[in-house]
Write a protein that binds this DNA or RNA. Sequence first.
DNA 1: TGTACATCAGTGAACGCGCGTTCACTGATGTAC
DNA 2: TGTACATCAGTGAACGCGCGTTCACTGATGTAC
Lengths: 206, 206
Amino acid sequence: MSRRSYHHGNLKEALIRAALDLIAQHGPAGFTFAEAARTAGVSPAAPYRHFRDRDELMADVARRGFARFEAVLELAWSQGRPDPFTAFERIGRAYLAFARDESAYYSAMFETGVPLDVNPDLAAAGDRTLAVLKQAAEAICARLPPERRPPPLMMALHVWSLSHGVASLFGRGDAARRKLPMAAEDLLEAGVLVYLQGLGLGARTP
Amino acid sequence: MSRRSYHHGNLKEALIRAALDLIAQHGPAGFTFAEAARTAGVSPAAPYRHFRDRDELMADVARRGFARFEAVLELAWSQGRPDPFTAFERIGRAYLAFARDESAYYSAMFETGVPLDVNPDLAAAGDRTLAVLKQAAEAICARLPPERRPPPLMMALHVWSLSHGVASLFGRGDAARRKLPMAAEDLLEAGVLVYLQGLGLGARTP
DNA sequence: TGTACATCAGTGAACGCGCGTTCACTGATGTAC
DNA sequence: TGTACATCAGTGAACGCGCGTTCACTGATGTAC
C-alpha cells in the first residue's frame, strides 16, 4: 500500500479517479487512456494490467456512477418518509444535484454511448437505478384508488425522462447549458407537481 | 457547377453532408475534419477554405439542424389546426421522429457540447426552435381561465425537457438506447396527456 | 469579342503530435517448504 | 525463520496511425476594358 513502492498499490482506483477528472475537464470525448495513465503517474502500458481497453474503463466508470446514483436516489427517497410527496420532491432535487455535482459520472453514464447490450453489469446497474424510481412511483400511485392508478413503471419513466431532460438541457455546468429564467430545480419541481396533479394527486391531498 | 471541373463547386454543402454521414456512423465524437474531406473527395486542406476549423463546421451543422428542427415543429404545429390539442400531439411525434430520423443533426445540436455563448447564430437558432414550442404552449394555455393560466414559457420548457428526455433515453437508434415496454412515442404522449390534465385541461374538454 | 489580370478554390507534400497498443523486461510481493 | 521460486504489477522503448494544420503552389473562374 505504500505509495513509495515500485507497485502503485491502488492503480485501478487511481485510473478511475483520473478518468473522472479528465471527463470533468475536457468532456467525455476528451478522455484518453494515455492521459489517464499520466495523471495517475504510471507508464502508458500500466493501465492494460487492469482494463482491456479504453472502453472497458469507461464502462466501469459508468457502472460505478450508476451505483452511486442509485445510492443517492435511495437516500433521497428514504422509504418515502415522512410522506411520499416530500420524499418524491427530494428525489428530484437529488437527481439534479447529482447531474451537476457528479457531472463526470453523469456524462459517463448517459453521454458516452456505452453500449448496454454487451455490458450486462452496466445494464443491471442502470436497471437498479430505475428500480428506485419505480419503487417511489409505486408508493405515490398507492395513494390513488385502484381504478385510477397508472402503471408505476410508466410514471417512473416519465419522471426519469423529465428529470433527465431538465438536467441535460439546463442543469449542466458547462458552456452548452441553456440560460433559464429560473433554477433548474424549480423547473423540475413545478413540472412534477403538474404531473402529479394530472394523475389526480392534487396539492398533496389524496 | 460541373463535378468534373477542378473546382468542387459545392464543397461546403458536401462537407456538411459528409459530417452528417460520419456522425450517423460513428457518433458525434467520431467525426474528423480529415475524414470529412476524404468523404467529400478533396484534399485535407480544402475544408479550410470554408470553415476555420472542425468546431466551426460542427457549429454550422448544429445551426442547420436547429433550422430544420424549427421547420419540422412549425409544420407539425400548423398554427394549431384543427385544434391545439391535436396539433400539440403532432409536435410530440414530430419531435421524436426528428431525433430518430435525423439523429446526426440531433446529436450535433445537443450532444457535442458546442458552446452557445460564443455562437450567437447557434443560440438564436435554438431560441427560434423554443419559440415554436412556446407559441404552441400559449395557444394551449389560452384555453384556461386567466387565473389558472401557467406561464407559457414554463410549459414549453417542461414539454421540451420531457421530449428531450424521452428522445435521449429511449428514442435513439444506437446501442445505448434503453429497452422499453412501449413505444417512445406512446410514452411521451401519455406523459403530455397527464401533464395537460394537471394544468386543468382534461380529456380535451376545456 | 478578346485579352490581361485578379481572385478564388483547390492541390499535395510536409510537419509535429498524441494516441492506442505491443513487447521483452524487471523489481516487488506472496507462498511453499 | 529462511530460502527458492512463481506470480504479479509495473517499466520504458518502440511501432504505426491518423489527426489537425501550414505552406507554397496552380489551375479555373470571373471581370475590366
